[in-house]
Amino acid sequence: MKDIFVLMEHRRGELRDISLEMLCGASQLGGNVVAVLLGSGVDSFAEKAAGYADKVLYVDDPMFENYNSEAYQKALSALIKEHQPGLVLIGNTAQGVDMAPALAVELGAPLVTDIIALEMEGDKPKPTRQFYGGKLNAHMTLKDAGMYILTVREATFQVGEPTKSGEIVKVENPVKEEITYRKFVEYVEPEVGEVDITQSTMLVGVGRGIREDKNLPIVEELAKVLGADLAASRAVVDAGWLPPDRQVGISGKTVKPKLYLAVGISGAFQHVTGMKGSELIVAINKDPDAPIFSIADYGIVDDLFKVVPKLTEKIKELKGA
């Protein structure tokens, strides 16, 4: 089997979890695992990756201090042409999504994005991904080719103990010219609000099921009697019903409260990623097939407008007693 290239992802001085996850996943497939690291002065990442890879290809150049998909694409395509791997794994992250399709078009390599499971049939990957917000799994068959590219959803593979000690090979930056048509400018931190939901003991998470912001008082009332803070899905934040600092999920906050009560939230993986570590998860949703029920401990399948006021009432009673 040909080599497997795994792109190391890092941001602001941190090697991101997806990098080691993919190295561990790749190790189960058979074939040499090559960690490809594009960075500037990130020797410690190279060493870390070496514990999980048979080889680390390391391009150390100021060009790669911050992520630029154009520079990444150029470097990767040069390294791929030179080393001819059979499979390339890239994180299905904000970085990976911004580059992988262009790389695939350039190299004429079949790409499947956002995979959640992977088997091999000889040299050919047989990935599984999801459709309809996680309601169905789709089993994909790739076109025959010499090389395939997959982007991998975070937490698809578990990180184990480092068992390898791959050779770290520093290679010259194959990208010679400066890229002028797309330039990194700066990072801007999300705004901090009045409540830090990552510190809350209990959260009532509100989703699009609430329909309109004028319905918010019913969940506010519930949160109040519980002594919980309000959190939200992205849909609620996009609509402007609750401020961005309340958003839970992949592009919001990761929370681990004692109780997460999801009200009218479908349970898209981008949301679930941010709250699945909660101690007790309860979901109220009228759709029995809502993915949120597969990670919740308790569920109520019903209309939230009927259940939530009753729940508030019952909690008041128990508190009074």
């Binding site: 695939a104 079949p110 790409l111 499947v112 999801q130 459709f131 996680g134 309601k135 169905l136 799994n137 789709a138 089993h139 994909m140 068959t141 790739l142 076109k143 998860i281 309860v282 979901a283 029995p288 993915p291 029920f293 597969s294 990670i295 919740a296 401990d297 308790y298 569920g299 109520i300 399948v301 019903d302 209309d303 009927k306 259940v307 009753k310 729940l311 009432e313 019952k314």
Partner: peptide, 28 residues
């Protein structure tokens, strides 16, 4: 690049325990 071979319903690990009854009962 790829074709969809077939769909399947995701295997759910342990499903939530669904509380049964009308809103009065489930809330209680």
């Amino acid at each position: 690049w790829a074709i969809l071979e077939k769909f399947s319903v995701p295997e759910v690990g342990e499903m939530a325990e669904i509380l049964q009854g009308d809103p009065e009962e489930t809330a209680a």
